[in-house]
Amino acid sequence: MTDPAIHKYSYFPGCSLATTAKENNASMVAFCRKIGVELVELEDWNCCGSSSAHSIDSELAAALPARNLSLAPEGRPLLVACPSCLLRLRQAQLHLLQNKDQQQWYQGTFDRPVDTQLEILHFFELLERLDISDVMPDAFERLKGLRFAPYYGCMLARPPELRHEKNYYGLMEKVLTSLGASPVHWRFASRCCGTFLSVVRPDVVTPMVNSIVDGARQAGAECVITACAMCHLNLEVRCRLPDSVPILHFSEALSLALGTAESDGWFSRHLVDPRPMLEQRGLLHSNG
């Protein structure tokens, strides 16, 4: 039985999706709307602290995500688009639940008790709950023949205290295969992209990114598909290979399967233009 009611989720895009990866954000929201999931952006959300807060100021690393948790309306799951933000928000929630002093501080600061029921979930978890053939009935085989390298980077690795949570390794392969695409087998699916060292130590990150993209190409992939905006950016800006392959956001690939992808707003923002490849594959028409 299909429930016609729209599922509402609170939505935390995070700084990358709000700025450098707007195409990731737009394709995520568009895809969700199309499958009957309404994302309600968390009002006035702030940065989760990124890599920098936990690196040099643990106190802030707890406080910044806490404010975001305090903004989430009760009784509605919070969907987080960025894997790093997700980790920060979940870790902050865990520490709040474990620590009475922290709970008191939270209540005093945000004037509400810690919502012990708040469910924080990643886009992967949302997808796993759905039956793809049910929510995307027309998309079957739409991506036929697209050879992709699934790239998770470090998003599936977690600190030991979050180890008990379910793992989603292979999810992109599962979903995209059911839409007709073919994953390649390759070495670098869960090799870290270098994150912020891309700015500070390009000498370290460039060879890493080159070997990742080259690995995808050597394995026969026409594109790399990422589920993290940071990975996407690093693979695009740090690759120095003369013949790179396009890097697609997972949400863009899903939208391509639904036939709702926007050539101009999304793919025009890529540093390695995926449009020729997509047009050749019949996945995109030149008029957008």
């Binding site: 690196s55 040099i56 643990s58 599936l156 994150t195």
Partner: peptide, 27 residues
């Protein structure tokens, strides 16, 4: 140099939060 990618801690057989140690040392 540690970016806390957790590649180490996910395979640590003793479940040590190695990036957590790096955070502490840095601070």
């Amino acid at each position: 140099a540690c970016v806390a990618c957790n590649t180490c801690s996910i395979q640590c057989p003793m479940a040590i939060d190695i990036p957590g140690v790096m955070d502490a040392l840095r601070q």
